[in-house]
Design a protein around this nucleic acid. Structure first.
Length: 325
RNA sequence: GGACAGGUGGGUGAGUGGUUAAAGCCAACAGACUGUAAAUCUGUCACUCCUUGCGAGUUACGAAGGUUCGAAUCCUUCCCUGUCCA
């Protein structure tokens, strides 16, 4: 067994050879974490979370976070770094992830980015334009304007930035507000792409897990039922007891939303389970839609835990190492 | 056995003679997404064909008949379901 190292081969002065980075994408429940652990063991890797909810402390069962006891000694980064009350953004995530990846590569380990948050992954790997942070006051004003005159936000954006307006539906208020916020705060149109800050310096291999839909859905249904019989409700009670109001961001997520409603007596347990199962399936579909569009993803047919998939992934990594020499 | 109520597209549920291939909702399927992203939003949704058009044809509202220029809608019989009375 050869010892893989992420050290650029040759001397430091040799023509820049980039450190490598592996990303594992795919729908929820496809076995990304399992595959990541296997790859990390084999290729001396460290895992970097790219899941918008596993960032949160105390949200463990409903996010299917790998428990510390099951991490096989592999370092895990960007898990449990946020309290429930902390709002986050793709931009902040990218910054944090790049820092973590830099450190991992510096010690010649292989960063393995794992997660289903496509937008976060793109922010990390491709960069986001440099735009202003959110401005609560302005957002409130825009929201009010829309409420008073429905459709007005889209009309306004169409006037200020027609190209952008064409890509956002007039009813997608969330995105319209963000686009207008940027335009107003920057006082100039955001040029397509030109402001993105590309991330250079890494050779990237993107793997995508693509299990058959029916077995994935069966597995998701089982996983959701397991969550509800194994403590997500208690987890929510504990978070509330520790001071959470239930209005925090992660409480809007799959499973937690339903568990909260159940804790508050608004739904039965079975209703909560059924609703979570349904929405989880739809979420998986949206993830597929997102990742399928990425031509760089190298798809592996099956679950991350399948022996055949693991072999394919190993093979992909081996040739990745060779071609990057 | 009797009295009511009802049987509509994958589900639910409107429609009670013509602009109804049949509202709405749900599911399903497809998609968008430049800082809330497990979020937010959109499209399609009987079948076939083409000149892809607010196009043509076929099939469809339990079944079979009937009335009518025209029926998911009215009539008859039958089948089935629910509630109540025996």
């Amino acid at each position: 067994m050869c010892a893989f190292t992420n050290e650029p081969l040759g001397t430091k002065s040799s023509t820049g050879v980039n450190p490598r980075l592996v990303a594992i994408a795919g729908p929820t429940g496809a076995g990304k974490s399992a595959l990541a652990l296997d790859l990390a063991e084999e290729f001396h890797g460290e895992i970097v979370n790219c899941d918008s909810l596993q960032l949160y402390r105390g949200f463990d069962i409903g996010t299917s976070k790998t428990p510390p006891g099951a991490r096989r000694g592999i370092p895990h980064h960007l898990f449990d770094i946020l309290p429930a009350s902390r709002e986050f953004s793709a931009g902040e995530y990218a910054k944090a992830a790049r820092a973590a990846i830099g450190e991992i590569a510096a010690r010649a380990s292989l960063p393995i980015v794992v997660g289903g948050s496509g937008f976060y992954l793109r922010a990390l790997l491709e960069g986001l334009p440099e735009t202003p942070e959110r401005d609560a006051e302005l957002r409130a004003k825009l929201a009010q304007r829309e409420q008073r005159r429905p459709g007005s936000l889209h009309r306004l954006l169409a006037r200020l930035e027609p190209a952008r307006a064409r890509r956002i539906h007039e009813r997608d208020i969330q995105k319209l507000i963000r686009a207008l916020e940027i335009r107003i705060l920057m006082r100039q149109p955001v040029l397509e792409r030109s402001l993105a800050t590309p991330w250079r310096g890494y050779s990237i291999l993107k793997l995508g897990l693509d299990p058959d839909r029916a077995p994935l859905y069966t597995r998701l249904d089982e996983r959701v039922r397991w969550m509800f019989t194994s403590g997500i409700v208690e987890e929510v009670r504990r978070l509330l007891a520790e001071g959470a109001t239930g209005g925090e961001k992660p409480f809007e997520s799959l499973g937690y939303k339903q568990a909260l409603a159940h804790v508050r007596g608004q739904t039965t347990l079975e209703e909560a389970i059924a609703s979570t199962q349904l929405e989880t399936r739809r979420y998986a579909k949206r993830q597929w839609t997102w990742f399928r569009r990425d031509p760089e993803v190298r798809w592996l047919k099956g679950f991350g835990g399948d022996a055949a998939v693991r072999q394919q992934a190993f093979g992909a990594l081996q040739s990745f190492y060779k071609t990057c020499l």
